[in-house]
């Protein structure tokens, strides 16, 4: 399942496109990709490290939570912080040797890491149940979700989509993260990150331990990836290796480019544009087969990106000066 969109049930009728359930689901994916790409923004946009392994951190977060809960019988809520710690540990293990590499080699190292994680998930069947995946980790979430649903029904909205509580929680987390990251970015700590992005040697010559900052940036991005991983797992109600293909990271980069580098709010805009265009194009009624329409949607997204590069290369929220002066 290389196409992350294929998770939507096939054969939707036209009525489904105006269906609020459908758009709630799209909104959740936009939110998950917002969170996912916030980690990339911290690394790429603010620290200048090309992390191409974000899907791997997402996988570790999702699998840790699912394994601890469904297989080890751990409390769901306890599994969340522990899965974050596990993901951070992996971030450090990846970062310690590879952040000393030149930027392009680091990108290759991270992509290899993410693929290694996916292949381990596929083959270490005792731990991960292989391609069958893991189910049954989300009972605690379901009861919370029902309480939120009841609360909304009490407020007077009687036909709440079943996924609406997840939509609320996903975007609640996304907004909270954007707000916190923007705040932290405005501190002296954030200033050092930008200096490392601009010129690592200059930062070192001014007494900044550039390596330590890059490692911190990677560890935080990894933990953000883990949160995106939980939400994806809850949305799908299962965790399988195919959800963590490298294309997930690449779509994260598309979100980043659309929204603009070095702006956290832009990430949400990029994710919403991407998912609205991708899913909205299901409305297309053309005398061609469904698989061709599916392919056409990606072609159109590609054209949107080309148009953006031609007319607004800094993305929707990016600053043109920062892009031009960046080198």
């Amino acid at each position: 399942m290389t196409d992350p969109l294929a998770i939507f049930p096939l054969g939707l009728t036209f009525e489904a496109f105006t269906d609020i359930d459908f758009w709630t689901s799209v909104g959740i994916f936009a939110g998950i990709y917002t969170i996912f790409a916030l980690g990339l923004q911290l690394n790429v946009g603010f620290t200048g490290i090309q992390n191409f392994g974000q899907a791997g951190f997402m996988a570790i977060g999702a699998y840790s939570m699912a394994i601890l809960t469904a297989e080890e019988g751990m409390n769901f809520w306890l599994s969340l912080p522990i899965s974050i710690l596990i993901t951070i540990a992996f971030g450090l293990i990846v970062g310690l040797p590879s952040l000393r590499l030149r930027a392009d080699y680091f990108a290759i190292a991270t992509i290899a890491f993410a693929e290694a994680i996916r292949l381990i998930a596929l083959n270490a069947r005792d731990l991960t149940n292989g391609a069958q995946g893991i189910f049954g980790f989300d009972d605690s979430w379901d009861s919370i979700s029902e309480s939120i649903e009841d609360f909304i029904i009490d407020l007077g909205w009687t036909d709440v989509p079943g996924l609406f509580p997840l939509f609320l929680v996903t975007w609640g987390i996304a907004v909270l993260m954007m707000f916190s990251l923007t705040r932290v970015q405005g501190t002296p700590w954030g200033r050092v990150l930008r200096a490392v992005r601009e010129d690592e040697d200059a930062a070192r010559a001014l007494g900044k331990n550039a390596f330590s900052y890059k490692l911190q940036s990677l560890a935080i991005a990894a933990s953000i990836g883990a949160v995106a991983g939980w939400l994806l797992a809850i949305q799908l109600a299962f965790v399988v290796p195919d959800e963590f293909q490298p294309i997930v990271t690449f779509i994260g980069y598309v979100v980043l480019v659309l929204g603009g580098l070095a702006n956290y709010w832009g990430v949400a805009v990029g994710a919403i544009i991407l998912w609205t265009v991708l899913e909205g194009l299901r409305f297309l009624e053309l005398p061609i087969s469904e698989t061709k329409i599916a392919a056409l949607r990606f072609i159109i997204v590609g054209l949107v990106l080309i148009g953006l590069m031609a007319f607004r290369p800094q993305g929707v929220f990016g600053k043109r000066e920062e892009m031009v002066l960046g080198d």
Binding site: P188, R191, A195, D199, D201, A202, L206, G207, E321, D327
Partner: peptide
């Protein structure tokens, strides 16, 4: 090695110990 995409004032403040 000016930190090109940062304002001059941030270049300066960065260096303070």
């Amino acid at each position: 090695k000016a930190l090109a995409a940062m304002p001059v004032i941030d270049n300066m403040m960065l260096a303070a110990p």
